[in-house]
Nucleic acid binder design. Structure first.
Lengths: 361, 361
DNA sequence: CGATAGACTGCAAACGATTGCAGAAACGCT
DNA sequence: AGCGTTTCTGCAATCGTTTGCAGTCTATCG
């Protein structure tokens, strides 16, 4: 069907081997034939067959990204970054959705290695640690966003302790003393780390930790809602809430809307991770950005490095952190007065200028 | 590295050909050896090498899904559905992000055919019509969500005329007479079709079409915002807005929030396409669902059909529509009174029961 | 001028499967 | 027993590349 190396060789009246060498540019052919073959190949529209090549070389020029779902906006931008970077390097990215099912993820994994992918970037669910570990012997693997404790794979992570610290400190600087935290379960690394950052910021500011202000749960909207209710129902409710996950944010927004709580006037809201609609929301939601772009870029870098330095590639470093940064929008407000009695219905209306920045004066 | 067919054959003391036949189950081997080989293969952990197989058979058991981005939630669920279905059939799905760049999409396309994918499901951007057309001669292609007018490829579409009709009629039934429409550009099929559905519903209801109520533009938040402003600034603003795209919805929500317009009390809002946060938004946003799941399923069906009936597979039908359906939530309100003077600031507070359904009484 | 190194080139064997063809074995039939 | 069928098996070619090895040619040098 398509034109093969043999066709090119025939057209050029050379052997296939010469054609191969000329086109792959091994430098073992004369300048002249090399150029001639390149020209002829182009004229004929020759495209090397990656399957045949793969069979011989054992490489596929395929790199897989395995995630468990795509709903997280961070994954989307990471996927896009990876796609772009890898393509530029001559690799095709395979984006695979593992799903929540352990078995399905495992199957996908084996299919991928069957296809002899050259590298794998995976957001580990923690359900297939052993398999990953075994696979890592054969192909370069880099973990992204999460660490799999069952393995000692190289991992690229957001600096969660620092991000949570940054966010909390921001709220403290705005004058908040009672800051509610809705965080991930404490049996996950990210849950623990985000809590630790929060705690550290509090301690540095000399604010006593109040465990009634701290709620942990799964990263789903429902968690956000129930935790938010609990916080608001406290005898002394917080003046600010730090939601350590975008899914949970949905629940919080819902509850505050239901209770007619104005953000940021009645309550400041800070969120971890960005969503495209956050800046379109009214008020636009301030966030701690986990740096998805940087994460993705670093992940490719590490993976490529491993793919080059095949085998012995143990640099010692196993964990890379990329810094989080604060993006101030309109959902956090300076508290200057020592908190006047909450009216519970103080309609905030417009005044777009009530952002953290401008209120700082 | 891994165990090959030859290893299995040796272990079983048969030739590779016999082993091959036994394991692929061509029925040309004796029951006994067949079973024996299957057993041995399993014991040895034999996994056929798809690359080698592909080289010989010209098939790859790979099916690609090419989209231009992943931000649209519909694409996410479609991707998940396709992944699941295809995996069950023994195919691996390749999810590829074409991006906005025509060149990049084109490159991806050629890479895919280089890799001898068995089939392609593509959301056409319209930028690579000719290439798609050419490719269609070699591999089965099904277009999804959009039609590429430059080709006559088999296409699976949402029933946009019907969806828009459904939504508009819903608003009319709620008593709305002046219904703003923010729709896609009229040089796109979906833009035209959604407009046509809107117009038809109006006509059926005997409502005169008012072109000041109709605004078209790109599917981005900014469009939503500017169009929304124009609508609200009308001497006689609409009592309901139908936004024919989820991105534009962001802009609309922003503007209504800025202007302190209460939904649904001051303005009913209906949106095309679902987003995960729509039902968490307050008020939860009613939508016309384009049936992403059905679309995806139908697309696989069609693709598989083409892949089976290779070559002559021209059934005549080139376009499949899957029905849209209305999902009522809380953003549309019954208009019973002949529209009392708009106070412009009527704070709506809570009363969660003001949904379309309950207000119907 | 002849030897020899160096630069190219071609032959042929891989890579790991599938598959047409032909031979071998087993079987039934006259 | 002889023969034709049927059923199973193995040989070897093939898919489109890459690559070790050996051969050819040119050029350079003594």
């Amino acid at each position: 069907m398509s034109v093969t190396l043999k066709d090119v060789a025939q057209a050029a009246r050379v052997s296939v081997s010469t054609a191969s060498r000329a086109l792959t540019g091994t430098g073992l052919t004369s300048e002249r034939t090399q150029q001639r073959l390149v020209r002829i190949a182009r004229e004929l529209g020759y495209r090397p067959n990656p399957i045949a090549r793969g069979l011989k070389t054992g490489q596929s020029r395929l790199v897989a990204l395995l995630v468990h779902n795509l709903t997280n906006a961070s994954f989307q931008v990471m996927a896009e970054v990876l796609q772009a970077r890898l393509k530029a390097l001559g690799y095709q990215m395979l984006l695979c959705i593992g799903g929540d099912d352990q078995q399905q993820e495992s199957d996908t994994l084996t299919t991928l290695v069957d296809h002899r992918i050259d590298g794998l970037i995976v957001v580990p669910t923690g359900k297939n640690g052993p398999q990953l570990k075994a696979l890592a012997k054969d192909i370069p693997i880099v973990c992204l966003v999460r660490r799999d404790d069952a393995t000692d794979l190289e991992t690229v992570l957001a600096d969660d302790p620092q991000g949570a610290y940054l966010g909390t400190r921001h709220l403290i600087e705005l004058g908040h003393k009672r800051i509610g935290l809705i965080v991930g379960r404490q049996d996950t690394t990210s849950g623990r780390e985000r809590l630790s950052g929060y705690v550290r910021a509090l301690r540095e500011a000399g604010i006593a930790r109040d465990d009634t202000l701290i709620h942990a749960g799964h990263y789903v909207p429902e968690t956000g809602a129930t935790c938010c209710r609990k916080l608001l129902d406290l005898p002394r409710p917080p003046s600010a809430i730090f939601v350590a996950n975008h899914e949970a944010t949905l629940g919080v927004l819902r509850v505050t809307a239901e209770r007619n709580i104005a953000i940021p006037d009645d309550l400041s809201l800070l969120c971890y991770e960005d969503m495209p609609w956050f800046e379109w929301h009214r008020p636009a939601i301030s966030i701690v950005d986990n740096g998805a772009r940087d994460l993705a870029n670093l992940a490719v870098d590490r993976l490529l490095h491993r793919m080059d330095a095949k085998g012995s590639s143990n640099d010692g470093v196993r964990e890379y952190r990329v810094g989080a940064r604060l993006i101030q929008r309109d959902s956090c407000r300076q508290i200057d007065t020592p908190a006047p009695a909450k009216s519970g219905k103080s309609k905030s209306s417009s005044s777009k200028s009530s952002t953290a920045k401008s209120a700082k004066v």
